[in-house]
Design a protein around this nucleic acid. Structure first.
Lengths: 201, 201
DNA sequence: GCCGGAGGTTAACGCACGTTCACACGCCGC
DNA sequence: GCGGCGTGTGAACGTGCGTTAACCTCCGGC
């Protein structure tokens, strides 16, 4: 291949392979859902966002609901796996574990504001079974935080620690509302400081 | 005069019943919307929640969208007015003003978890004009916080203070996620402590 | 060369749901 | 009593949209 067109073709092909079609769809859909809500975004809109027509979606997902379910479940799984890994890597000190969890959540929220938005907004529009599955994953992620907080604050009850964890999530997950107000690095430092202060107040 | 009085009386009575009905509808709708999202809740559902059929809604609202718009605008107005009043009452000390704002937001979030949920979730499903109106109110409420935070933290820029305000909102507005885990009073104290710690970290 | 499957297209179907319409009923001023 | 008005009902309409159907194209393996 000698011409530039072929090069750009291969580059595009490489990009296309780097992200499978399913993931392309999920990513585009997440962005649209975050902006306007999954119920207001049509299948045609999702298709148009990746350059195909609406029904093409059904070559990759059984239904729109199945697509949303997979999206939410994927997010919850990434959070749970990431949180557990960071805690494991952080060593036995609960203060260090908390720092690791905060850093992880901050990074995730800054890198994926759309996923953060969709994550808790569209849970209610899931079929009961799928919603239960996602909620179970979410709950396990919360428990990772609760375990750390409990060892960090021996005097506090489990319920208080759980409420504390939810509050920290809310704090860090404010990124979609304050997008682009600060450079990413600065925002990360700010959120991490605030989150740790709130968690240990 | 007696005519005028009678007229205004009946007008007031009519307004009162109509307003209470409107309020009933808005309240029931807010609860349903918080649970399942405004797009998944039908007009019939809202009607059924107050014991009437769906079309009865149209005796009180021009359309479902108008109802949502009024709901969101009402929330934003209550927040803005409440925030300004609390700051005014708190006196000149910015630390005291912050405490007042935090207490206000915590009370609101604990008293109206459904409104909190709907408030930022269904903004995207509003008509452009209505959305702009609500966003303007929201922005002015944020600026109330930013003004206080800026005087409290002279070294910090406006953008950082705005991000900080959003983060505190996220923290306090976690109430829908941690509903009923703690008695209200305890939860209020916990959230207020965390919010102040985060705001002044 | 051919064949099968992966992935796309357009057209059409059906249902959910917002909205409107025609009508009914109770209440209050006259 | 009577008529207007506020508020409700059930039926019907229109449409947006998720989904399916029928058909096309490209491509890798035999």
């Amino acid at each position: 291949m000698t011409d530039a067109l072929a090069d750009s073709d291969t580059a595009l092909a490489a990009d296309a392979t780097r992200l499978s079609r399913r993931e392309q769809i999920l990513q585009a859909a997440a962005r649209l859902f975050a902006e306007r809500g999954s119920r207001s975004v049509g299948v045609d809109d999702v298709g148009a966002a990746i350059g195909v027509t609406g029904p093409a979606i059904y070559r990759h997902f059984a239904s729109k609901d199945a697509m949303i379910a997979e999206m939410l479940q994927g997010i919850s799984e990434r959070l749970l796996a990431g949180g557990r890994e960071r805690v494991a890597v952080a060593g036995p000190d609960p203060a260090e574990q908390l720092r690791a969890l905060v850093a992880f959540q901050v990074d995730f929220a800054l890198d994926n504001p759309a996923l953060i938005t969709v994550h808790d907004r569209d849970l209610g529009s899931l079929a009961p079974g799928d919603a239960a599955r996602v909620r179970r994953l979410q709950r396990r992620y919360v428990e990772v935080w609760v375990d750390v907080l409990r060892r960090l604050r021996p005097g506090e009850g489990t319920d208080a620690c759980r409420a504390r964890a939810h509050a920290v999530f809310g704090l860090v997950n404010s990124t979609p509302h304050s997008a682009g107000q600060l450079p990413r690095e600065e925002m990360g430092v700010l959120l991490a400081e605030m989150a740790e202060a709130a968690a240990t107040a």
